[in-house]
Design a protein around this nucleic acid. Structure first.
Lengths: 198, 198
DNA sequence: AGCCGCGATGACAGCCGCTGACATCAACCT
DNA sequence: AGGTTGATGTCAGCGGCTGTCATCGCGGCT
C-alpha cells in the first residue's frame, strides 16, 4: 500500500508482459513475410524474445497461434443459444447465435483479412480452420440439446447454422464493398430455406 | 513370350505384392492394439515387411493410411451429381449422390466399425476425418456449379448433403440393429427439411 | 523480517514424423 | 544385349514437439 512501489523502469516484473500476444504478433508477421512452412517455431520465439519451449507452453502447436479467437467465439455462441427464449424456432436460434459475431467481425475486418490471407496460403492451416468449424458445430449441438431440442434436429440445426456462418462471412470478407454482415447472414439464411424447400 | 517363364516360387517378382494393402493392414492392427500415438511408422513398415521410407511413398503421412477410401467416394459422388438429369432439384441431387455409398457401406460394416473405433480414439484422426468431409463438400460444390447451379445454392446444397450423410451414417454405424442405410438417409433428409422450414 | 510455495520462463536432451538424394535391381522394351 | 522404368532400400538431416530439471521474482504466511 506504500506509495511509489512501482519502479518506472519497464522491467517491473521478471519478464516483459503479454508473452502470448507477442508470440501471435511475431508469428503472423513471419508467416506473412515468408510463408507458413518457411518459418520455424524457434524463429517466432526469437522475434518475440522468448524460447521455442515457451511457444509450446502457450500454443499446442505451430498452427494454433493463428486460432486463438475460436474458443471465445464458440463459447459466446453457445451462451446465446442457451439464453434464447424457449419459444424460439431453429431458424431464429441460428440467427440469434450468429448475431454475436457481427460486431467483433466488423471491427476487425483488416485483421481478419490478413489472417485469412495467411490461412488460405497453406493447406495445413486450412485444415485447422475446418477443424475449428467442426468444433463450433459440436458446441452448438450441445447447447441446442441442453435446451431440449431432440436429435437429429439439434445436429441438423447446428450444421445449418455453421454452414450459413461460413458462407456469409466468406462472402463478406471477399466483397471489396462489404455489405452489413448481419443483413448478409439473414439473406443467406433465407436462401438456405429456399434451397431446402425444393 | 517363351513358355514357363514364371517360376513357381512365390517370389515371382522382386517384392511381395500389394505393399500398400499390407501397410494399411499393419497400421490398423497396431493402431488398434496399442493406440495411434503409441505406434511409430517404422513399426508399421516393419510389420508390413517394408521400410519407413516406403510407407511415406504410399501415404502422405501417418494418418492418411486410414483414409484411402475417401478419394474414391468423393469422385463417385461428384460423377453422380454431374450425371443427374437437368430437371433434378437440390434435394433430389443430394439423395441421388448419397445413394452411391450405401452399397459399399453396407458390405463393409465390420471394417467401418473397426476403423471408426480407431479414429474415435484419437483427436488427430478425428481432425483428419473432418478435413475429408470438407473436401467432400468442396467436390460436391464444384460438381453442382458445373451443372449450372448458382452460388450460394451450390455451396448450401453441398453442405446440406454432407450434413445429412454424416448424420445418417453416424446413426447407422451406432445402431446395433442397423436399419437400411438408404432409408435412413431419406428419413434424415426429410427431418432436415422439417427443421429448415421452421 | 524471514520463509516458502507458485508460476512463468530457460536450458537441454531426445524422439519421431517426414524429406531429399542416391543406389539397387527385376521386369520390360527395343 | 543394352537401355529404361519403377518400386524399394539406405542414409543423413531438419524441425515439430515433449519431458525434465533449474531459475528466480512475487505474493502470502507466520
Amino acid at each position: 500500500m506504500s506509495a511509489a512501489v512501482i519502479s518506472y523502469h519497464p522491467e517491473v516484473s521478471r519478464w516483459e508482459p503479454n508473452a502470448r500476444g507477442r508470440l501471435v504478433e511475431a508469428a503472423q508477421e513471419l508467416y506473412l513475410e515468408r510463408g507458413y512452412d518457411q518459418v520455424t517455431v524457434a524463429e517466432i520465439a526469437q522475434r518475440a524474445g522468448l524460447t521455442e519451449r515457451t511457444f509450446f507452453r502457450h500454443f499446442a502447436d505451430k498452427r494454433e497461434v493463428l486460432f486463438g479467437g475460436a474458443r471465445e467465439l464458440q463459447e459466446q455462441v453457445a451462451a446465446v443459444i442457451r439464453a434464447a427464449p424457449e419459444s424460439a424456432t431453429p431458424t431464429e436460434l441460428i440467427e440469434t447465435a450468429l448475431a454475436v459475431s457481427t460486431k467483433a467481425f466488423t471491427e476487425n475486418r483488416a485483421q481478419l483479412l490478413r489472417r485469412g490471407q495467411i490461412v488460405a496460403a497453406n493447406p495445413e492451416l486450412r485444415e485447422r480452420e475446418v477443424v475449428k468449424g467442426a468444433a463450433m458445430v459440436a458446441a452448438m449441438t450441445t447447447a441446442l440439446r441442453e435446451r431440449g431440442l431432440p436429435e437429429p434436429a439439434a445436429s441438423l440445426t447446428a450444421e445449418l447454422g455453421s454452414a450459413v456462418f461460413r458462407i456469409a462471412t466468406g462472402r463478406w470478407l471477399a466483397d471489396p464493398e462489404p455489405p452489413d454482415l448481419s443483413a448478409l447472414i439473414k439473406e443467406t439464411l433465407a436462401e438456405l430455406k429456399a434451397v431446402a424447400a425444393r
